[in-house]
Design a binder for these strands. Sequence first.
DNA 1: CGATGTACGACCGAAATGGTCTTGCTTCCC
DNA 2: GGGAAGCAAGACCATTTCGGTCGTACATCG
Lengths: 162, 162
Amino acid sequence: MLRLTKKADYGLMALKYLAEQADLAEKAGADLHLTGARSAKDIAEAYHIPPQLLAKILQTLARAGILVSHAGTNGGYALARPAATISTFEVIRAIDGPLFITSCITIHGACDLAGHCTIKEPLRKVNDSITSLLSGISIADLAEPVDHLPAAMAGGLVSIER
Amino acid sequence: MLRLTKKADYGLMALKYLAEQADLAEKAGADLHLTGARSAKDIAEAYHIPPQLLAKILQTLARAGILVSHAGTNGGYALARPAATISTFEVIRAIDGPLFITSCITIHGACDLAGHCTIKEPLRKVNDSITSLLSGISIADLAEPVDHLPAAMAGGLVSIER
DNA sequence: CGATGTACGACCGAAATGGTCTTGCTTCCC
DNA sequence: GGGAAGCAAGACCATTTCGGTCGTACATCG
């Protein structure tokens, strides 16, 4: 249940990586017009993921305004904004699309089963809770050792085993 | 993203329905050994969902100990416990299986990509938050008009449009 | 015994997912 | 200017998952 796709996984990993690069570049005082830009291939190699697939993911991220791309030799991708201002929610939505927790809630909020689906209201709230949870977590939060996560993440630690 | 399957949807709807039936039966003082038992076909008709599919879902729930079944004429399914003690999490897990938010976290907690997946730790916490969120919502919460949901559901209402 | 209903496994088509290939266009550097 | 490095984008494909159906077997009540 509640699985996010491998693409989203990859996307988050790549963003985290780029965030670290940007951080390093900044600390080194580098005067690159694109601080910490890295090619899709580099990132793919770092994490052992299919380069072509990652490329496609990065492209969609760039289209969504989360990354900026730079073609040509020594080109690559870099964060379009500071890592702290990019939420995981935004990323996931850009990659996986605006899907909802319940199949019954469409884009227009209408239920296929007009009247007889009384379950959707409470579930919509669950949905909202999750979105706000994800919205509260930025790429920067992923990049740094996470001991103190945003308040949104408070909550029991239910252990899940089969 | 974060979609739960139609089966889980159906399962929750059916449980809600059964919870209401049990409630009615109790109020009427009925002395049924199985209070509010309903056949799969009845429920399916009430919500316009494929009867055979629902039957299979109910069987799964019965195997999970959430429902009790009674074969034969006038048989059917009823809640095995009070609706307030059945969490949505439990239901979803029974139907969809113990899947995790990130594909990288397996049952054994091991990551395919041994070392180089540094994203999983924070995501695991998100995962835990969601589980505890769902654990805090019972079937009874779904059945009654939901104005005051459990505290776990506090959180911003982020509106999501395409 | 027969009607009603659960139990369960095999099966199937459609859609989503994960991934590859090809082709084209930009930019840098020699 | 001409490569080489790199992004852009779309067609394409294999595999899995999902939603749903069918058939058969078994239980129970009247």
